[in-house]
Design a protein around this nucleic acid. Structure first.
Lengths: 164, 164
DNA sequence: CTAATACTTGACTAAATTACTAGGTTAAGT
DNA sequence: ACTTAACCTAGTAATTTAGTCAAGTATTAG
């Protein structure tokens, strides 16, 4: 388990998709503007997210990315693992030994801590953040301010339908 | 909150000190051998740990490093923060705004997740791992195998004293 | 005192990761 | 057709990580 800016970008981007889930796809250009990182870098990240079955791309005008699965089933740990693609857990773990064929005691303690951390993050889903009351409405307001008109429009009609 | 190999090195090294707490200082050369990283790199890490009041150096023959405080009071989050020295939490947070003077909603959600993660790691102390029954004895055995005779000797007499 | 041990500091280098740039191709909507 | 936006590839600048080298200082055993 590793947590870097890359993982943060992935998680926040996925939150963005989750907020607009069911409303319509979100373009990378939008996310790029909001997060302040380059479009091509986002493309790299989303390529990984797509290959791990977390998002789906929709081509053409009005296209973008959307969640491949409901937000309830997507955990933070999954997202981080997808963008990080890290295999090496410890220095010696690949070979299985630390020195003299013995694994260092501290490494065992570390993997235990690492597992606890994973369980913690694997228990947090996107929906936990997005399904809070009022979040959708707030997102719509911000979309209008930020010039995401297409999204805001679709969001508004989605909210009207929900109201019925 | 960031978690890289640097943080892992710091945590595992601190676990090593905690295991030998009360027994005597641990030399960086020992840790270097066990963790498989260079002595000078460890020196850099321990310089930070010392400046953050987590460890104390003992000079002269038989010297090394030891915990500056009891293991019960040292949390994993503290160690990671000490070696990482990271300030930037989000891309826009330094300036306080994301775009158009509005903070992106996703960034707020991220900081919330980040705080949860910090609380989690700040609740895990070194003693939780080290004070498990049998850990000290196991450490002594490994020290002998790994040629850490001085430590093993002190550890043994410490255990004898505990037995009384 | 002297030598051995171990911490301290700084400057410098190699490797890996992060982030970006520039050029495309492909699919779908108008 | 034309535009939009996903998708792909290669290269590269910037930053971080990890390690090296060298010249110190402090402590203590003998």
């Amino acid at each position: 388990m590793r947590l870097s800016t890359k993982g943060r970008y992935g998680v926040t981007a996925m939150m963005d998709l989750a907020i607009h889930d069911g409303v319509g796809p979100v373009t990378l250009a939008d996310i790029s503007q909001c997060q302040g990182i380059s479009l091509s870098y986002l493309e790299q990240l989303f390529s990984k997210l797509r290959k791990h079955g977390l998002v789906e791309g929709v081509r053409g005008p009005g296209g973008g990315y959307k969640l491949a699965r409901p937000a309830e089933g997507i955990t933070v740990a999954e997202i981080i693992a997808a963008v990080d693609e890290r295999v090496d857990i410890t220095n010696c773990n690949g070979k299985g030994d630390c020195q003299d064929g013995q694994r260092c005691l501290t490494h065992e303690l570390w993997t235990e801590l690492s597992n606890r951390l994973f369980d913690f993050l694997n228990d947090i889903t996107l929906s936990q953040f997005v399904s809070r009351p009022g979040i959708r409405e707030l997102a719509m307001q911000r979309d209008q301010i930020n010039g995401r008109f297409a999204l805001a429009k679709r969001q508004a009609s989605a909210l009207r339908q929900e109201a019925r």
